[in-house]
Simulated scan of single mutants.
Amino acid sequence: MARPTVRRARATRAERRDQIAQRLLTAAERFVADGTSFTEISVEQLITEAEIARSTFYMYFEDKGALLLELTDRVTVIMGQAALAWLELPPKSSRAELKDALGRVVEAYFAHRHMLAAVAEAAAYDPRVREQYGEVMARRIEFISEHFLEKQRQGAVRPDVDVPSVTPWITWMIERCLYQWLGHDTRSQSEYTDPDFTDGLTSIIWHTFYEGVA
């Protein structure tokens, strides 16, 4: 009879950790949006902004670096969910539909651009972040490659494309370009509009994977 109680207690702790991490993500994004680099943000500032106790922070995170790794996973999941609109486009989708799907990826990046930029920059000096970021990108490349290989089998992607060879280039190109053009964009969410940027991305993806498919 005790097992359901134990499972519920574990679930509650996991839920609590998830809530704490989300509040810290929101707090961190507020600071970096104001121009503060993640390295300059103290744990004290984060817990004050997130309205949690110091003991609560250290119950779940060893240090600020461990928190950054958690936040890396969270924003990666968000970007992965946004990319599904593109990766799961049905066969014979139009270029306009591709642009709309890619626009969701760009919008998701813009919404979390400061945190994503902080992660990319931390990877340059923090070995833990660099290793995890490399693993994140490797998983993303594999995920995209698997989707395109399946689409190729369905006849929805050009048969002459060497998907495993092309996917790493496309994945890193998108990541680097989003960082360069949007990572430190000072516009508010309501001011965001990038039709030319998305047009260029659409053109590259269309010509690489879809152009000429019957």
Rank of each mutant, 00 (worst) to 15 (best):
102 L>C: 02
127 P>K: 06
152 Q>C: 00
162 D>H: 12
124 A>S: 11
148 F>I: 11
139 R>A: 15
160 D>E: 15
103 G>W: 07
145 S>V: 03
94 S>P: 01
164 P>S: 03
152 Q>H: 00
116 L>M: 15
126 D>R: 10
118 A>S: 12
129 V>M: 04
152 Q>T: 02
102 L>Q: 02
142 E>D: 07
106 V>A: 14
157 V>M: 14
157 V>A: 10
99 K>Q: 15
118 A>V: 10
117 A>Y: 09
138 A>Q: 12
157 V>Q: 11
160 D>Y: 09
111 A>H: 15
174 I>Q: 01
97 E>F: 05
154 Q>I: 13
145 S>E: 15
105 V>T: 11
128 R>H: 04
161 V>Y: 07
104 R>Y: 12
163 V>T: 10
135 E>G: 04
98 L>T: 08
129 V>H: 00
135 E>T: 09
150 E>H: 07
93 S>P: 06
168 P>E: 00
165 S>I: 07
134 G>F: 01
136 V>I: 14
130 R>K: 00
172 W>D: 04
99 K>W: 02
171 T>S: 04
93 S>D: 07
121 E>H: 04
112 H>L: 10
129 V>K: 00
139 R>V: 13
162 D>K: 12
152 Q>R: 04
134 G>I: 05
135 E>L: 13
115 M>H: 03
140 R>K: 14
119 V>Y: 00
133 Y>M: 13
164 P>K: 05
120 A>P: 03
163 V>Q: 10
138 A>T: 14
155 G>I: 14
108 A>E: 13
96 A>L: 14
112 H>G: 03
148 F>S: 04
99 K>Y: 02
166 V>R: 10
129 V>E: 01
155 G>F: 08
172 W>L: 10
112 H>S: 10
155 G>E: 09
148 F>P: 06
145 S>A: 14
109 Y>G: 01
163 V>D: 08
131 E>P: 03
115 M>Q: 00
147 H>F: 05
112 H>P: 03
102 L>P: 05
114 H>L: 13
172 W>V: 10
167 T>E: 11
101 A>R: 03
147 H>W: 05
171 T>R: 02
